[in-house]
Deep mutational scan, measured.
Amino acid sequence: GRPPQPKSVEDLLDRINLKEHMPTFLFNGYEDLDTFKLLEEEDLDELNIRDPEHRAVLLTAVELLQEYDSN
């Protein structure tokens, strides 16, 4: 089946190999997954995450988090 739900933002970023963005998220108040899963493209602009590939991966991760919630 699906991988288990990540336990933290750090756990999530670790899985998608984008842990380099951890300080950015923490500094901007994305300390838990409840906050993280509200992330949208405009937020990525504000966080200055410009890499299109990173953005795509992050937004996909957000969608997956929302799916875990609805099940």
Rank of each mutant, 00 (worst) to 15 (best):
G1W: 11
G1P: 11
G1L: 13
R2F: 10
R2C: 00
P3A: 11
P3G: 12
P3Q: 11
P4I: 13
P4F: 15
P4Y: 14
P4T: 14
Q5N: 11
Q5I: 12
Q5H: 12
P6R: 01
P6D: 11
P6E: 07
K7I: 12
K7V: 11
S8E: 00
S8M: 00
V9E: 01
V9A: 02
E10H: 06
E10T: 06
D11Y: 04
D11N: 05
D11C: 03
L12W: 06
L12P: 01
L12E: 03
L13Y: 01
L13W: 00
L13M: 04
L13N: 03
L13D: 03
L13R: 03
D14L: 09
D14K: 10
R15E: 12
R15L: 10
R15Q: 12
R15W: 08
R15I: 10
R15S: 14
I16D: 04
I16Q: 05
I16T: 06
I16H: 10
I16W: 05
N17P: 00
N17R: 05
N17Q: 09
N17L: 01
L18P: 00
L18A: 03
L18S: 03
K19Q: 13
K19C: 08
K19G: 10
E20T: 07
E20D: 07
E20F: 07
E20W: 01
H21Y: 15
H21W: 10
H21N: 04
H21D: 01
H21G: 02
M22R: 05
M22V: 13
M22W: 15
M22N: 07
P23V: 08
T24C: 07
T24P: 01
T24G: 04
T24V: 11
T24M: 08
T24D: 05
T24E: 08
F25Q: 03
F25S: 04
F25N: 05
F25I: 04
F25G: 01
F25M: 05
L26T: 10
L26K: 13
L26N: 06
L26E: 11
F27T: 15
F27R: 15
F27N: 15
F27W: 08
F27S: 15
N28C: 06
N28M: 04
G29K: 00
G29D: 02
G29P: 00
G29Q: 00
G29L: 01
Y30H: 04
Y30M: 06
Y30V: 10
Y30R: 01
E31K: 14
E31Y: 11
E31I: 09
E31P: 11
E31A: 15
E31C: 13
D32Q: 08
L33Q: 04
L33W: 00
L33C: 01
L33P: 01
D34R: 07
D34G: 08
D34H: 08
D34S: 11
D34V: 04
D34C: 07
T35A: 14
T35K: 15
F36K: 00
F36H: 05
K37G: 05
K37R: 10
K37M: 11
K37S: 09
K37T: 05
K37H: 03
K37V: 03
L38H: 13
L39E: 03
E40F: 00
E40K: 15
E41Y: 02
E41W: 06
D43K: 11
D43R: 08
D43L: 01
D43V: 08
D43I: 06
L44I: 01
L44R: 01
L47N: 02
L47M: 13
L47V: 03
L47F: 02
N48Y: 00
N48I: 00
I49Q: 01
I49G: 03
I49H: 03
I49D: 04
I49T: 02
R50E: 11
R50L: 14
R50K: 13
R50S: 12
R50T: 15
R50V: 14
P52Y: 00
P52L: 05
P52C: 06
E53P: 01
E53C: 10
E53D: 13
E53V: 10
E53M: 08
E53T: 10
H54P: 04
R55Q: 07
R55W: 00
A56C: 10
L58T: 04
L58C: 02
L59T: 06
L59K: 10
T60G: 14
T60I: 00
T60A: 15
T60N: 15
A61G: 06
A61I: 00
A61D: 03
V62C: 10
V62S: 08
V62Q: 03
E63G: 11
E63L: 06
E63Y: 04
E63I: 01
L64A: 15
L64Q: 15
L65E: 03
L65G: 02
L65I: 08
L65Y: 00
Q66A: 09
Q66N: 14
Q66V: 06
Q66S: 09
Q66C: 08
E67I: 07
E67C: 09
E67V: 10
Y68C: 14
Y68Q: 15
D69T: 09
D69Q: 10
D69W: 03
S70C: 11
N71R: 14
N71L: 13
N71G: 13
